[in-house]
Design a protein around this nucleic acid. Structure first.
Lengths: 179, 179
DNA sequence: GCCTCTTCTAAACCTGGGTTCATTCTCCAC
DNA sequence: GTGGAGAATGAACCCAGGTTTAGAAGAGGC
């Protein structure tokens, strides 16, 4: 029961509408978010008003603007709901202290860190080595169901091109598949 | 003294010439490398023979093809010396067991993981959001001394363009600075 | 010194993607 | 149903970067 009391005191799980903003790039607020259902995008906003999608988090996931151990800085990216989403918000300090006190949790965090590191590395590789068309094709094969839930503009900004260029790429691929 | 004996048994620190290969993408060998002096590049090799530079490690650093905890897979990238380098090679299994047995070491690894994760994130951001010219300029300001030790081709492949395009970018920047 | 190998730059041409403006499509609200 | 707003596509134009080939400039080796 004391467990439940603490859960209620520090957590707050809310249902948030499509479009609601969870993190704003440049802010110094510090929370860890647990996505329980829905769809969230993490994105960078450039000084000239463009937006580029860092990653999508579908269905369930864990994200925050900074890493648990990291010294306080400003958020490097923004986060916003792309669908109605159920999201729990945890204070970063509280999470940090929980992790510090629990060696088993530390091991879990280490595994999670490694998983996410490998994903980042693979993203780096595709952005550095592959053309937009190839990135599109592998995104489709690896994330077929996710792609259906996303707007063309969001997919485009994830691939690193404008929505118009993305439309052309799709047309090109369509032509190739006909022959 | 027992410490020293083990060090001699499992480590091997060697002086390696420019051009020598430390890691080959696709291999399954598993080592952790400690760069004590010199300069190393980590790079991806694509199926059509192109090479793209993942990162440079100047002077001192730590790298391996996979992460200590990771399950055995093949190397995702290659590594090669760009200058004469002094490099210690440690068996990944041995490193892994050392870390598992030492909670203080675990904390150090966690900090290192976070540091490297933040670097990856910042690289992702530049590759996704910035033009090659902007990437060149910020690389210059942040790595002025390193840039002098690198060939144009290696810088170009790090920025994500061909050496020829890089030469044009430099020319463009030169023109702008004159006015 | 000279010769060779490598690196870097130059020029010409082509393609992919950005930009702008206009048009179609689709989904809702009413 | 109709009207309207946002999303997606189409067309025209420009520029950055890839490709190829050639030439200039360094860096060793002798």
């Amino acid at each position: 029961m004391r467990q439940m009391a603490e859960r209620d005191r520090v957590w707050s799980s809310e249902r948030r509408p499509k479009g609601s903003v969870l993190l704003v790039q440049g802010d110094t607020s510090s929370s860890v978010f647990v996505l329980e259902s829905g769809l969230v995008k993490l994105c960078y906003e450039t000084s000239d008003g463009d937006e580029w999608v860092k990653s999508f988090i579908p269905d369930v996931g864990l994200f925050g603007s900074r890493w648990p151990l990291s010294t306080s800085q400003e958020n490097r990216f923004s986060a916003r709901c792309l669908e109605w989403s159920q999201i729990a918000t945890l204070p970063a300090d509280w999470v940090r202290s929980k992790i510090a006190a629990d060696s088993q949790l530390q091991a879990t965090v280490a595994r999670f860190s490694e998983w996410i590191y490998r994903r980042k590395q693979s993203r780096e590789e595709t952005l550095l080595c592959e053309t937009a068309e190839r990135r599109y094709l592998s995104f489709l094969t690896n994330n077929a169901s996710l792609a259906k839930r996303l707007s063309q503009a969001d997919i485009a900004r994830y691939l690193g091109v404008t929505p118009i260029a993305f439309s052309r790429i799709k047309e090109r691929v369509r032509q190739k598949n006909l022959t």
